[in-house]
């Protein structure tokens, strides 16, 4: 192909030698992942949600007796739930809100017309969620280690799998909401859900501590499944199969629903 000219205008079609002009798939997705990561890290509200609030939760649970009896040290009982909260902040609330507003402004439609395409957009977003998650793990996990957190290292690989699975479930749910209702509604729903699930959704405090039938309901929520499974992995080094299946179920159900009902404009 003839090099595009110095005037910054497209080359005459007759002068072209190759038929494709798309960057390779992996490069497109990596670039979009980087772009979305920068957008998330550049947004003050997202940073509060992703880092500041989880750290406050970590301090709160470490300096009160709410979680006494779950592990030998309070920090050991608190940290797995706070890591689960980080997943919900980034994959669900943060990513849901940004996708909702991208949809409003036509950004999704525009990018879908570039070689990135719809699939590349979704993969790029997933990549950005994982990248922000890594940063959260370093900051929140690092703070916990300084505060004396001693996780069961046998459970560390399980925890990594759970974090990715949790991110998939919450990303699917976030996309489902962002793709079906107005962005203002997405903002309200995902923020409210974050507060309610953080307070009573079994993510920070085990659902089993809730009274009666409430405990049974909370047990099937993705928040509770992720919180419980991370506590089992990082406190006892065990794999909670039931919780994994619940997360998988939410991922598949929300993923299918989002594929079916997501509106691009």
């Amino acid at each position: 192909m003839v090099e595009p000219d110095r005037y910054g205008l497209p080359v005459a079609p007759a002068d072209r030698e190759t038929s494709t002009n798309a960057a390779p798939l992996a490069r497109r997705i990596l670039r979009h992942g980087r772009y979305e990561t920068a957008a998330m890290l550049g947004n003050g509200e997202q940073l509060v949600l992703a880092v500041v609030l989880p750290l406050l939760a970590l301090f709160g649970l470490t300096f009160t007796d709410i979680l006494d009896g779950i592990a030998e040290a309070r920090i050991d009982a608190a940290t797995p739930g706070v890591l689960a909260l980080c997943v919900m902040s980034t994959a669900f609330t943060g990513q849901g809100i940004s996708t909702g507003f991208d949809r409003r402004y036509g950004v999704l439609r525009f990018l879908a017309t570039t070689p990135l395409g719809r699939a590349g957009l979704i993969f790029g977003k997933a990549l950005a969620v994982l990248a922000v998650l890594v940063i959260q793990m370093v900051l929140v996990g690092g703070t916990a280690l300084i505060l004396g957190w001693r996780p069961d290292l046998a459970g560390a690989p399980i925890a990594v799998v759970l974090l990715v699975l949790g991110a998939a479930a919450f990303t699917s749910l976030g996309l489902l909401i962002a793709g079906t209702v107005r962005p203002e509604a997405t903002l309200a729903i995902t923020n409210l859900a974050w507060i309610l699930l953080a307070a009573g959704g079994g993510i920070l405090i085990p659902g089993s501590r809730l009274p009666g039938v409430l405990a049974d309901i909370v047990a099937v929520l993705p928040s509770s499944a992720l919180g419980d499974a991370l506590r089992d992995a990082l406190i006892g080094g065990t794999m909670n199969i039931g919780a994994c299946l619940i997360l998988l179920g939410w991922t598949i159900a929300a993923g299918l629903a989002a594929t079916r009902w997501f509106k691009w404009n």
């Binding site: 000219d5 205008l9 798309a22 497109r28 670039r31 991208d102 036509g106 439609r109 990135l116």
Partner: peptide, 29 residues
């Protein structure tokens, strides 16, 4: 309606779109 992200600066957007192509135009020009 443009389809442009409001919080991004024009050149950052153009550079991002440029990255999706193997033979983009000279963006600065």
């Amino acid at each position: 309606d443009g389809g442009l992200p409001p919080s991004v600066k024009p050149m950052a957007l153009l550079r991002h779109v440029e990255g999706m192509y193997s033979h983009p135009v000279n963006v600065d020009a």
